[in-house]
Simulated assay, not measured.
Amino acid sequence: MKRTMIGGMSRVLCASALAATLASAARADEPFDLDGLIAAAKKEKPITVYDSTGKIVEMAKNFARKYDLSAEGSKVKASAQLEMIIREARANNIQGDVSIVSDAPAAVAQLIPQGFAESWLPPDLASKIPAEYQDPLTVVTSANVWAYNTQIFDKCPVTNIWELTEPKWKGKVAMQDPLGKASYVDWFNQMAKHGDDKVAQAYREQYGKDLKTGAESATAAWVKALAANAPLLTDADAAAADAVGAPGQSEPFMGLISSAKFRDNADQGMKLGLCKDLKPWVGWLYPGVGLITKGTDSPNAAKLFIHYIMTEEGIAPQAIDGKMSTNKDVGLPADEPSGIGKVLDQLLPYAMTTSLDDWDARETWQDFWRVNYQK
Rank of each mutant, 00 (worst) to 15 (best):
K155F: 06
S119G: 12
Q374L: 02
Y67G: 07
I112W: 04
A236V: 08
M1T: 14
A361C: 05
W284L: 06
I86N: 12
D68Q: 14
A230P: 02
A334G: 00
G96W: 06
A64F: 12
K170E: 11
W222M: 05
E88N: 15
G54E: 13
Y133A: 13
S258G: 13
F262P: 02
P287Q: 10
S16Y: 04
Q201R: 02
F63G: 06
E118K: 10
P113S: 06
V76S: 13
K303E: 00
N189Y: 00
K342C: 01
A28K: 10
L121C: 09
A200G: 01
A266Y: 04
F253R: 02
V57D: 13
S79Y: 04
I94T: 14
A106G: 08
A302G: 09
K294N: 15
M59K: 12
A260Q: 09
S79H: 11
A202S: 07
A28R: 13
T354Y: 06
A60G: 11
W162M: 03
F368Q: 04
G248D: 13
R27D: 15
A361L: 05
E251Q: 12
N265E: 07
L137T: 10
A182E: 12
A64R: 15
E251T: 13
I100V: 15
S127V: 05
G331L: 06
D264S: 13
A200T: 08
T353W: 02
V185D: 01
R362L: 09
Q190P: 00
W120Y: 14
A302I: 08
S74Y: 15
T213R: 07
S298K: 09
P105N: 01
W369Y: 10
M191S: 01
T364K: 14
T354E: 09
I6F: 05
Q249R: 14
Q151D: 15
T48N: 11
Q110G: 00
P46C: 13
K181M: 09
D267E: 14
D329L: 04
F188A: 04
L347R: 06
R3N: 14
V282G: 08
D124C: 07
D242S: 11
A319H: 05
P113C: 03
K209N: 00
D277E: 06
R204F: 01
G273V: 10
T311V: 07
Q81F: 11
V343S: 05
N160H: 02
P46L: 13
R263W: 03
R27Q: 15
T213M: 07
C14E: 00
G54L: 07
K294E: 12
E30T: 05
A78E: 09
T353N: 06
I161E: 03
G96M: 13
G115S: 09
F253C: 01
E72H: 14
L232K: 02
I161F: 06
D360K: 07
M270Q: 10
L272A: 10
L226M: 07
T53R: 08
E72A: 12
W169C: 03
T293I: 12
S102H: 02
S142T: 12
Q206R: 12
L37Q: 07
A236G: 13
Y148V: 07
S74E: 15
P122G: 12
K155A: 11
G180N: 14
G341V: 04
D321C: 09
D321S: 14
G171L: 00
A301M: 12
P113E: 05
S217T: 03
K271P: 03
A80S: 15
A238Y: 11
